[in-house]
């Protein structure tokens, strides 16, 4: 079931190679465009005639709408994001999960995929175990997680490692194309969380090494043209 983690992801802003949208790197405070017609969206603001960047990133003009897509920085939790996390504590009514964000996640016992007896919680998820979970609520108390959904649950075998969270959309690729390519060529199960943690599993150690190498290559070359061909080349070696 875990092979499907990436399919459980909602559509996220994604780097695509044949983008028709105009994009360029901007610094905070830089004027992106001028004119009454434009509408500032995420990461942008209007000052008089000008639309300015309110953070560092890729400014994108999609018709009249201007936004700035982050290309660097820490993971910012969003509702519906799928994340990988590590169980750090078992409480009376759920599990505390480190999701490598500014707040830890909480997985209530009712959000497990099946009924779990309160006395047997650690048999389902023990400290140090890894889960793929979805963020279903962010509130003042913290981040609430669920395992209900396709591709979510405990991850068995393999290993997890971290890449830049901002490179995850590219690792998944358009409609999952990049991750599918790497899965297919290496024969590994792979799941990427929006928090930058990636899970790779295979019984073959060399395949695991190769899959990780390919994923790290994508993560470090997000802005390179023709990335798919380069990854294919790497996997053919």
């Amino acid at each position: 079931m875990n092979q499907q983690i990436d399919e459980a992801q909602e559509a996220e802003p994604m780097e695509t190679e044949q983008s028709t949208k105009k994009r360029r790197v901007v610094v905070p405070g830089e004027v992106i465009v001028s004119g009454e017609d434009f509408l500032p969206s995420e990461g942008a603001r209007r000052e008089g005639q000008d639309i300015l960047a309110s953070r560092f990133g890729l400014a994108e003009e999609a018709g009249r709408v201007i936004k700035v897509i982050p290309i660097t920085g820490a993971f910012i939790p969003r509702r519906n994001s799928v994340v990988l996390g590590r169980v750090t504590q078992i409480t009376l009514n759920g599990w505390v999960i480190d999701i490598d964000a500014a707040s830890s996640g909480f997985l209530p016992i009712d959000e497990s995929p099946r009924f779990i007896n309160k006395n047997e919680m650690d048999q389902f998820l023990a400290i140090g175990d890894v889960v793929a979970a979805k963020i279903w609520s962010i509130n003042v108390r913290g981040i609430d997680l669920t395992l209900k959904g396709k591709g979510l649950g405990k991850l068995e075998g393999g290993f997890i490692f971290r890449v830049s969270p901002n490179s995850v959309p590219r690792i998944i690729g358009r409609e999952g194309s990049m991750i599918s390519l790497i899965k297919e060529r290496t024969g590994c199960d792979i799941g990427a969380g929006q928090n930058g943690w990636v899970w790779v599993q295979s019984d073959n150690l060399d395949s695991q090494i190769q899959a990780r190498k390919a994923i790290e290559f994508v993560s470090e070359n997000v802005h390179v043209d023709g990335l798919t061909e380069k990854v294919e080349g790497l996997l053919n070696k």
């Binding site: 590590r86 490598d100 023990a126 890894v130 290993f159 997890i160 971290r162 150690l205 695991q208 190498k213």
Partner: peptide, 27 residues
Amino acid sequence: MSSMKSAGITIDTFKKLFTAGKRFDGR
């Protein structure tokens, strides 16, 4: 970089890799 501790599955994979004399970076 993260401040997350090593996961159980990851430590097990390292054990298998090292026993086979392998490392992720090829050394």
